[in-house]
Computed example of a mutant assay.
Amino acid sequence: MIRAAKLEDRNDISVLLLQLGYPDTESFIKENMERLLADPNEELMVYEAEGRVIACISLHYIPQLGMRGDIASISYLVVDSSIRSKGIGKELEEFAAASAKKRGCISIQVHCHSRRIEAHKFYERQGFKEAPKYFSKRLTE
């Protein structure tokens, strides 16, 4: 079942983020989730099975100035490593794409680190194409 995330899900989400290589999120995840859940341009969804959160997706809607529609951006999509390749990620991505269409978005994008080879294959199966260069500047040390 896909549903909106609740603050009570934060421990399960922290475990999922650890599987993506983001340790120690417990100390700040509550504040980050409160901010995300309060922002109308953010959507944080979880996949729950048997009373347990086993996957999540974070979707951001980015208003555009020079285009007719907005852009949706997936920042985190993670399925528990013990149950990957069972269609849960596909369900979450398709849910996100449908949400983006409802909001009038013209595209959906995802930034996926170069080391995540299996994730690249997943996104390609979902119809994503590699886009032009992506630049990032670190603002904190």
Rank of each mutant, 00 (worst) to 15 (best):
R3N: 07
K30F: 12
F95R: 06
S85H: 09
G66M: 13
P132I: 04
K86V: 08
K137A: 11
I88S: 00
F28G: 03
A49T: 10
L44G: 11
M45N: 15
T140P: 13
A72R: 02
I71N: 01
A55R: 02
G127C: 00
G69W: 00
Y22I: 12
E34A: 07
L59M: 10
E34C: 01
V79F: 05
I88M: 04
V46S: 06
F95Q: 00
C56N: 14
I54C: 11
D24A: 00
I83T: 00
I13V: 15
L65E: 03
C105R: 01
S114W: 01
V46D: 05
M45W: 09
R138E: 14
R84N: 03
G87S: 11
C105T: 10
E8R: 09
R35Y: 12
I54L: 13
I74D: 10
K121I: 05
R125I: 14
I57T: 05
L36A: 15
A55N: 00
I83K: 03
V78R: 01
I117L: 05
D12M: 12
L18E: 11
A55V: 10
A38F: 15
Y76G: 03
L7S: 04
Y76D: 12
V46L: 04
N11I: 12
E48V: 13
I62D: 09
A119V: 08
K133N: 15
A5E: 05
G89D: 03
R115S: 05
E50T: 08
S99N: 03
Y22S: 09
K121R: 12
I57Y: 03
K86T: 09
D70G: 09
G127I: 09
H111F: 03
P63M: 06
A96N: 04
Q109K: 07
E34W: 00
L20S: 00
A38C: 11
H111N: 01
G104P: 11
L44R: 12
G104C: 11
K101N: 15
A4I: 14
L139W: 10
C105D: 06
P63R: 09
D12Q: 13
P132T: 09
V78H: 05
Y61P: 03
L92Y: 02
A5C: 15
M67A: 15
V78Y: 03
L77T: 06
R138W: 07
L16V: 08
I74T: 06
D70I: 00
R125Y: 03
F28T: 02
E42L: 05
K137Y: 15
E48I: 02
S14P: 00
E34L: 06
E48K: 11
D80I: 04
G127Q: 12
L44T: 13
K6Y: 08
